[in-house]
């Protein structure tokens, strides 16, 4: 075997291993999703049967029809989109600034302020419920999607993510910019931001996901059914005091996850530039 043939063989084996691993993982990760997709076409009588059945019989669209029969369903989708849009826009704008400052600029109290911000994530929500009520009511923001969005447009976890990303960029490029007389703010807009597209994509995906699925916040601060977001709306429509209609909720959560998946696909080009990691050159 010539070294070249050997190299080719190793590459082949590597590709096979890669595929086996990828497929196994895909199966594990997809299985509950497939299960709920199948169940969304079943009656609850069948979906809850024991042992589990995999083929809808009778095949029913009732669960989806139940969703679309809800008069408020389109409203909830619109509310959720508005909420998610505000949160994503706010986070992309403000947390990239803050993350850059915490990672790349030197100013007094930098690390202390950052730790203090991070510590906000460490208090369980149950003890902050009362003060949050006070603030939201005093500001007149109860039952208002904009008010709810204001709570989350500078999420500390996004600041943290941006900071860590800016820290992982190489120093040289910023040094060079500085020697060229490029000020810190200019460097943010002309150097840091263009380089930060992958992280901005990740922040956008995370915040969209978080706000699209958010439950506790909208549950507490939105009060009129016509102002609800989708998750709260689904719970409103299908959860009773003593029991829950699961199949429409499953169908609803499948419908709800579609926009997140689309956003992920759209932002994919920022997340992936396709780096050659395997032996082959593309």
């Amino acid at each position: 075997m010539t070294p070249k043939e050997k190299e080719r063989l190793i590459r082949r084996i590597w590709i096979v291993i890669t595929y086996v691993v990828l497929l196994t993982f895909a199966l594990v990760y997809l299985m509950p999703f497939i299960r709920s997709l199948v169940a969304s076409f079943m009656t609850w009588a069948q979906a809850s049967r024991y042992p589990p059945e995999w083929i809808p019989n009778p095949f029913t669209l009732e669960n989806y029809q139940k969703l679309f029969r809800l008069e408020l369903f389109p409203r909830w989708i619109r509310n959720t989109a508005l909420y998610a849009g505000l949160i994503v826009a706010g986070n992309v704008m403000f947390t990239s600034m803050a993350g850059y400052a915490f990672a790349r600029l030197k100013f007094p109290g930098r690390d202390v302020i950052f730790s203090a911000l991070l510590s906000l994530l460490m208090i369980p929500m149950f003890v902050t419920l009362v003060p949050n009520y006070i603030i939201i009511y005093k500001l007149g923001l109860i039952d208002n999607i904009f008010g709810l969005a204001l709570l989350g447009i500078t999420n500390v976890s996004s600041i943290f993510l941006m900071r860590q990303y800016f820290m992982s960029l190489s120093n040289e490029i910023f040094e060079a910019a500085r020697l060229d007389g490029c000020g810190p703010i200019k460097a943010f807009f002309y150097i840091a931001l263009p380089l930060a597209k992958p992280a901005l994509g990740a922040v956008a995906v995370y915040q969209f996901l978080g706000s699209w699925n958010a439950f506790i916040g909208p549950l507490i601060f939105l009060r009129s059914p016509e102002n609800f977001t989708l998750p709260v709306g689904l719970s409103f429509a299908f959860q009773r005091a003593m029991w829950t209609e699961y199949t429409p909720i499953i169908a609803g959560s499948l419908v709800a996850s579609a926009p997140t998946i689309i956003l992920f696909l759209v932002l994919n080009k920022y997340l992936i530039r396709g780096i050659v990691v395997t032996g082959g050159k593309g």
Partner: peptide, 8 residues
């Protein structure tokens, strides 16, 4: 003013 709290 009718307010709905669906859970908790």
């Amino acid at each position: 003013k009718y307010e709905v709290i669906t859970q908790m």
